[in-house]
């Protein structure tokens, strides 16, 4: 991929409203995650007030069952949720790329076999399997990442494979093959650059999926108890029956909104990336307006 093309993508992207909104949302969250200790009023693990306080000037979102500041919990939770989302998505797409490139490049029996495996993984409902795995290997930051990435790579693998198939038929790849270039050279110089843009958009979509899965696992009590994510906050809100009182307004509503907006941010970014990569989509959208 040459510079020219990236520049072109960038122009199209900045002309795409949804994409810009998505990026703005992501930057906002990343900012919060980076500066969490500076922004948050309290240490999220410290008992700083009486339990179950309603919002007041000291605690904008009140306190939880043990007297920790909910706002501080959420601000620090941003770090955990985003980190898990991004790392898990990265690993998932990395596995997907590896499988997809091998299948697409070599074709034939290898391709056939790998795609069967992909079909298998796609048929298995992943949440129960994730719960099973997480229960056995124990809840921790890295275990959650492992469980998510090891069960969500199949979708990206399929997309990457079809992209490799397209790239493979391009003249320059066939030329490189026919003059006997090394496989490693062809892969790194020709195939990989053709796959990177698609992989990026897959990564963004996988991240939004991973954040939702992490929230579900944490809500089911499989989150890392020492690194509270938004899902963990909701787990405690549920366990302490916050829904029976007005406490749901500051204990249940905010974390869910944080998750939803972040997922939308990723989704907007991802969709507009896909649109940019697929000019047919772009044109179609335009002529329908």
């Amino acid at each position: 991929m040459d510079k020219q093309k990236w520049k072109h993508y960038l122009t199209v992207f900045t002309n795409n409203n949804l994409g810009m909104i998505g990026i703005a949302i992501l930057l906002f969250y990343i900012f919060i995650a980076l500066f969490a200790p500076l922004i948050s009023p309290y240490d999220p693990t410290a008992r700083v007030g009486a339990p179950f306080l309603s919002p007041n000037s000291n605690f904008l979102l009140g306190t939880n069952d043990v007297g920790q500041d909910i706002l501080s919990e959420l601000i620090h939770g941003t770090r955990i949720s985003i980190l898990i989302g991004i790392i898990a998505a990265f690993l998932s797409v990395a596995i997907g790329c590896l499988i997809g490139i091998i299948a697409g490049y070599y074709g034939g029996k290898i391709d056939n076999f790998l795609m069967r495996v992909v079909d298998l993984v796609l048929v298995i409902p992943f949440l129960p399997l994730m719960i099973l795995l997480a229960a056995f290997i124990g809840p921790s930051f890295w275990n959650i990442i492992f469980v998510i990435s090891v069960l969500t790579w199949a979708g990206p693998a399929r997309v990457i494979r079809s992209q490799v198939l397209t790239v493979k038929t391009k003249g320059y790849v066939e030329a490189a093959r026919s003059i006997g270039s090394k496989v490693s050279t062809i892969l790194s110089k020709h195939i990989l650059p053709g796959v990177v843009p698609i992989a990026l958009s897959q990564f963004v979509l996988a991240a939004s999926q991973a954040i939702l899965i992490e929230a579900s696992l944490s809500f089911l009590g499989l989150g890392d108890p020492f690194n509270k994510s938004w899902g963990t906050v909701l787990y405690y809100a549920q366990a302490r029956s916050a829904f029976l009182t007005d406490a749901w307004l500051w204990w249940i509503l905010p974390p869910g909104i944080l998750i939803t907006v972040l997922v939308i941010g990723f989704a907007f970014t991802g969709y507009s990336m896909e649109e940019i990569l697929d000019p047919r989509l772009r044109k179609g959208r335009k002529s329908n307006e």
Partner: peptide, 17 residues
Amino acid sequence: AMPSFWIGMILVSIFAG
């Protein structure tokens, strides 16, 4: 984009709680 369990929690907070 909403977490599935959260939709349930919100519904229960409003209509039951």
